[in-house]
């Protein structure tokens, strides 16, 4: 159906004006009551005293945060030195998340580009193929990755039997294993936003660049990448943030030596060794880091659109 020569004036999307608040109320009740309030409770708990078998004593204390940053010696009465243990864990998590993001970007961008430049039904099929693994339970995916890369797992067996290596490649319980796990967990989050951005890309720009003697590389770096940058940034955020707080990949693939934030926090709420305020404090610190990243992102978005 051909569009008329004059576009209709912007129709108002207020068919149900006046019903906005009652319609949005259930969402506010559920999310407000079961997420916002709990996070506030978590903040409060981080400022309480720990109870020895888990739980808290309702007594204000900064002990949790203190324990995180400072080392006051065995009996707690030495002058405070910086406690590096936990800071290191956080730093390592940031590092791991950043590397995973980079890994996803290097593999994800060409994949997204490739899929977006397929035509018709092919494109849907490729998209489908990329997203199916995501729908498999994260736990299952992490387990299968663990199974695959174990010292005596199928991957090593295959490599050994073909003679390419003489000893099993030790990947499990290393940084690389965690990287692989994070990549496996969150790759589609990188591919899909980039795919959306490339799909919207106007190929006439590439044609114009070619017409003006640009090589393929120049076109890619100077024309295409800036045009799809919003998708790339969205993808990076969508991989970095969950990777930061990931639990399963470091837990199942990283082992004890690759303790990340997720494992640290989980440990605080398990049984007798737990320290609830400390766990809450660590969660608050993680949340703050994520909020900082998201705020920077949001600010950059509004600046670009403004």
């Amino acid at each position: 159906m051909a569009a008329g020569p004059q576009p209709t004036p912007t129709a108002n999307t207020s068919t149900y004006a006046g019903f906005g608040i009652p319609l949005i109320l259930p969402a506010w009740v559920i999310i407000g009551f079961f997420l916002v309030v709990p996070v506030c409770m978590m903040l409060i708990y981080s400022l309480l005293t720990k109870e020895f078998r888990g739980g808290v004593i309702w007594e204000f204390s900064l002990a949790a945060y203190d324990q995180f940053f400072f080392d006051r010696g065995l009996f707690g009465d030495e002058p405070p030195k910086i406690e590096w243990t936990y800071i290191t864990i956080f730093w390592r998590s940031i590092w791991q998340a950043a590397l995973a993001t980079l890994f996803c970007l290097i593999i994800g961008f060409p994949t997204a580009w490739f899929i977006a430049t397929r035509t018709g039904r092919n494109r849907s099929i490729w998209l489908f193929l990329i997203t199916i693994p995501y729908w498999v339970n994260l736990l299952i995916r992490t387990i299968s990755m663990k199974f695959l890369i174990r010292d005596n797992g199928p991957m090593n067996e295959l490599l050994l039997s073909t003679g390419l290596i003489s000893e099993p490649i030790h990947i499990i319980n290393t940084n690389l294993a965690v990287q692989l796990g994070l990549f496996y967990s969150y790759l589609p989050f990188m591919v899909l936003p980039i795919y959306a951005a490339v799909e919207r890309y106007n190929f006439a720009l590439s044609e114009a660049a070619a017409d003006l003697y640009a090589s393929r590389t120049v076109t890619l770096t100077q024309i295409i990448l800036p045009a799809v940058k919003p998708g790339i940034i969205a993808g990076c955020i969508l991989v970095f943030v969950p990777s930061l707080g990931a639990f399963l990949a470091p837990d199942l693939l990283g082992g004890a030596k690759n303790f990340m934030i997720g494992s640290l926090i989980e440990e605080q709420f398990k049984g007798a060794a737990g320290n609830w305020p400390f766990g809450a404090a660590a969660s608050m610190i993680l949340l703050s880091m994520v909020l900082v990243v998201l705020t920077l992102y949001a600010r950059q978005q509004t600046r670009e659109q403004g």
Binding site: M1, A2, A3, G4, P5, Q6, T8
Partner: peptide, 9 residues
């Protein structure tokens, strides 16, 4: 009638 013929040849 809001430009009802504009989409016809």
């Amino acid at each position: 009638l809001d430009e009802p013929l504009s989409a016809l040849d």
